[in-house]
Every structure is written in structure tokens, then in C-alpha cells.
Simulated scan of single mutants.
Amino acid sequence: MDLLTTGVKREREKYTVEIKSSLLWESALGIAAITNTSLISTLDLSEKDYELISQSLSKNMKEQLDYVQANNTWKTLLQILHQEDFKDLASFNNYVKSLSSIELKWIAIPYLGKEGEILKKELLKGSKDALRELKYITKDHTFLPTYLEFIHKVSIEKLKAHLIEVMSGWFKAIIEPHKVKLESILLRDKALKEKMLKNFEPDQFVEWATDGVQYPPEPSVHKVLLIPHYIYRPWNVEADLEGVKVFYYAVANESISDKSKFVPNKLLVQRFKALGDENRLKILKMIKENNVTLQELTTKLQLGKTTVHHHLKILKSARLVSQSLNEYVLVDKAIENLPMELKFYLESE
């Protein structure tokens, strides 16, 4: 059926992309990673890495990390880091010391939408009703309800002392001994991403930079902030600021080595491997002509369902195909961008 348009034509929503990096972000994200017990076994860290981290931490630091794990104060550290571009650990610590009780608690509570901002103001005046409402708004979140209650009740001097001790302790024990290496990795990745940014639409770039996160434009967000990290690999962590979506993303493999120009992007390799098979190419062409189900593909290809499912899994891992309910859909942008991604790799210095 044809569509009769009677309204004013509106331009597609867009956002800008900004990339920031610093060892302070790496420190805070390291604290977040090492205290996330549900994900710690999945991190790209060897047993030797874990041993070295454990041996480097004092008894007091281990107690501080227990406090982080119990109260999710890594979130407070990240919230503070969004307030200014701190030059070093000393400027971060001085900033924390300078904050009043109201200022620190306001910063510590993440952006929860317009309604949440109103409730935050009431909460900071001591309203238990506001706390109850905020906990209800965030009831489906893994830790925010208990985190909000913690921030509401905590002694501000105790919180300040903890934030300074845990950030300083981690930075001095884990970051400083590897400062040159870590800073080089983060800066290499930032430079790589900034060079590629001009070649993509913002949402395409975010998907490429984060190795697959799809974040289409939305009216309330005017900027996406990308912050690279090394220790939390392979995970992306997301957060919300007012008008800003934040992705703390895992640095690419090619950024880890100083011979990075010879190391291809992991997703680029996956995509060309996925395309290097006759049956998978057939599947792509069939999906291009019409979205299809697993059963339809099995019938058309005259292959076993297990075999076709295996091929689809490879294509999905390479982000060439997505699934919508029972149907498989071609990711057109991924196909369109392949020549550009290959060209970028071959010509990068």
C-alpha cells in the first residue's frame, strides 16, 4: 500500500561521536572489572595476570575492593570522571575532597531521565518517598536500587575517603608499573578510531568501534562518548548521562601491539572467514532476496538443519546477518562497509 505523507519531512535523528581516553578511566574500569564476580572469569586476563594483580594489592586495598563489590562504588568513580577532564590522580583526588555532601551525592546518582532528575533533588533533601520512587523506576536493574539506597545513607566523609583510597591504591599498584604500555595502547586505539570516524555515519561507526553494539539515534541523545579500556576486555560497558550515551569499549586487538599496522581488526577477519564458504554465500544471497527462516533455508539448500544453523551462527558472529523473531535478515551496512574496512586496514600506517 502506498503511503500518503501529509506532514513536514523531518531529517533523520543523528548524534555526534566523541572519543576520550585516560589512565584514570582505565583505573576506574579496572576496579569495576576486578570486583564484578559474575564476569571476572570471562575477562581476557590469564591466571598469571590475576596472580600479579593479587600480589600487588595491599591488605587495605583488598578491603577497599570488598567495599566496592558490596556497594558498587566503581559507579561513583566513573560518574566523577565525567565531571572534568582530570590531568592526573592528584587533580582527581583534590576534586573529590572539594565536593560538598550534596554535590557528591548528586554526581554519584546516574542520569535516570527527566522524572529521575526531579526525584534526585527530592532525595537529596532527605525524601524517603523519592528514594522509594527511584528504586521502583530502577527495579529491573541489577544493582541500581541498592546503590541508590547506599548513596542516600552513606557518610559522605567515609565515601570520600574510600573513593580516594581505592582509586589511588589501584592506580599506584596496577596502573603506574605499566603506565607507558597502557597509555600507548589507549592512545593507539583512540587514534585508530578517530582516523576511521570520518568514513562512517555515527551509528555505523559506533557498531564498528564497539565490535557490534547497535545504537541507532534517539531524540534524547545528541552525543555518544566512546572511552577505550584494556582491562575489561572483551566487554563493553554502557552508561547514560543527560543527552549523552557512554560506551566504555574494549580496545581492538590491533591496538595492543606497537606493530599494530600489521594486525587486522578481529571483526574484519571474522567477516572474510564467514564469506569464504560457498554455502554461506548462498545463504546471504537467499536472505538478500527475502528474509527467511531456518526451515526455509534448510529446504532450499537441501542441507541438514544442524549444518545450516552452524553456517548462520558464523554469519551472525560476523555481524553479517541478524535475527528478527524466526527470520534471518541481512545486515546491509556490514556488507556495504566491507570494502572500506579492508581499504582502511591495507592503507593504515
Rank of each mutant, 00 (worst) to 15 (best):
E13I: 11
G7W: 05
P202K: 01
P339S: 12
G30S: 13
K179Q: 12
I31H: 06
N291Y: 11
I227M: 04
I175R: 04
S22I: 01
T299D: 15
I156W: 07
P177K: 05
L39S: 11
H178W: 11
L320Y: 05
S22M: 08
T138I: 02
I102S: 11
E278C: 08
K245E: 01
E11S: 10
T42W: 13
S91D: 13
E11L: 10
I19E: 00
G116M: 00
A90N: 14
K223F: 03
V269K: 01
L182K: 06
V244A: 02
E103Q: 10
D258L: 14
P219K: 05
H82M: 12
L303V: 06
Y67S: 09
Y15F: 15
S322M: 06
Q302C: 06
T293K: 09
L267G: 13
H162R: 11
P110G: 00
I283C: 06
E278D: 11
Q270V: 04
K282Y: 08
E242C: 00
S98N: 01
E201A: 11
A90P: 01
E165C: 04
V331S: 05
I175N: 02
K179I: 10
L182T: 04
V263D: 02
K305S: 14
V213S: 00
E347R: 06
I283Y: 02
D2A: 15
E207C: 10
L163A: 09
Q214I: 12
L338Y: 01
R10N: 10
K305E: 14
G212R: 06
G126A: 08
S58M: 07
K179E: 13
L281H: 03
K14C: 11
I137Q: 09
E157H: 11
K120T: 12
S184V: 06
E149C: 08
L338R: 01
L312P: 09
D88G: 07
H311M: 03
F86K: 02
I314A: 05
Q64Y: 05
Y249S: 06
S46Y: 09
D211C: 07
L29H: 07
G243M: 00
W74S: 07
V68T: 14
V292A: 13
P264I: 09
A274R: 12
Y248V: 03
E194T: 09
E47H: 10
T146R: 14
H311E: 03
D140F: 03
K343M: 13
K87L: 07
Y136Q: 04
Q64L: 10
T307D: 05
G113I: 02
K158N: 09
T76I: 13
A130T: 02
R10T: 12
R271N: 10
E201N: 09
I314L: 10
K282Q: 14
H222G: 12
F171H: 15
E13L: 12
L3G: 05
A33D: 01
V206A: 01
S348Q: 04
E218K: 13
A318R: 07
K343Q: 15
K158Y: 03
H82W: 04
Y67M: 12
D211E: 13
D140Q: 03
L225S: 03
L342H: 03
K14E: 15
K105Q: 05
L312C: 09
P339E: 11
I107G: 02
